[in-house]
């Protein structure tokens, strides 16, 4: 335990993951990826996986996200019967699906259903980065579209929380691309009905997810420092042969460039969304042309 007090002064460049694996007793302690602080795992969990020292918002599972965001026990999962199929015979897809199902105890990369936030009824979908990068395939497309249609029928606001680094799931070829159009068309119907859509972008949100539902919110909200992109930084670097500026594609960068309404820390997310939705749906507001 005390070994890190005696680290030689000038050898700093080591892989953090290796270091944390060797020096920290498994399970009890974790190290912040950003500020290197050694934290009690329980302390980090109690703080919603946000580093109490530097405020880094670590990635969390969809289940954890729902726990944090919704009223206790209010989430009713739906459309779980919709499952991915390896219809292209794509290398490793079956194996990846099976191992992801085992690892995450989810049936695909999104949880969808109804829930309450501060007693307000909502339709909620949360994608999970730990299930194949939170990628968008036919199953996610169907679950989210079915959820939007349910919201239209039952007059509910829709909240989608993205943690999808990979964007469209290439293992489903063109069909994954079409899911972008499918969900966006659903959101068009929702908009026609005058119902609000809140998009929450968390670390990471990329590719076909960003270029479809994630950017279409009446409210586009992000967590601090969340990595949000269209093209991956390596692709851009490879194309333009330049180093990318610091802070590029972080939530603050997107807000600076007008793509995001506001950034809110994890513990305040629930109340912030509730407050905004309450204002938008307030019955006492100006009646206008109606």
């Amino acid at each position: 335990m005390a070994a890190w007090f005696h680290r030689p002064k000038y050898t700093i460049v080591r892989k953090t993951t290796e270091r944390s694996e060797t020096k920290i007793p498994e399970g009890m302690w974790v190290k912040c990826e950003k500020c290197d602080s050694i934290l009690l795992k329980k302390e980090l969990d109690d703080n919603l996986s946000v580093c109490p020292k530097c405020g880094l918002h670590s990635r969390i599972t969809a289940k954890k996200r729902i726990e944090i965001l919704t009223d206790e026990g209010s989430f009713v999962p739906m459309f779980e019967d919709v499952r991915s199929v390896d219809f292209l015979g794509f290398p490793q897809y079956k194996e990846k699906l099976e191992s992801s199902i085992k690892k995450t105890n989810m049936t695909d990369s999104v949880l969808a259903g109804t829930a309450k936030i501060n007693s307000m009824d909502i339709a909620l979908a949360v994608t999970d980065f730990f299930f194949m990068g939170g990628s968008l395939g036919s199953a996610m497309g169907e679950r989210i579209t079915a959820l939007i249609e349910l919201a239209i029928r039952e007059n509910l606001p829709v909240i989608i929380i993205s943690a999808s680094g990979g964007g469209a799931r290439m293992h489903e070829g063109i069909m994954s691309l079409m899911q972008m159009a499918k969900i966006s068309a659903g959101l068009g119907k929702l908009a026609d009905k005058g119902l609000p859509f809140v998009s929450v972008m968390t670390d990471p949100t990329g590719g076909g997810v960003t270029a479809s539902f994630a950017m279409l919110g009446d409210l586009n909200i992000a967590e601090p420092e969340a990595f949000i992109m269209f093209a991956g930084p390596r692709v851009i670097e490879g194309t333009i042969k330049q180093k990318l500026p610091a802070g590029f594609q972080r939530a603050e960068f997107l807000q600076e460039h007008g793509m995001i309404d506001y950034i809110v820390v994890r513990k305040d997310m629930k109340n912030a969304i509730h407050q905004s939705l309450s204002t938008m749906l307030n019955k006492e507001k100006y009646a206008g042309r109606a």
Binding site: V82, R83, S84, V85, F87, G137, S138, A139, G141, E142, T145, E172, M175, M178, Q179, A181, K182, A185, G186
Partner: peptide, 8 residues
């Protein structure tokens, strides 16, 4: 577009 997708 709504009907696009292959899943079980």
């Amino acid at each position: 577009f709504r009907n696009m997708g292959i899943y079980e």
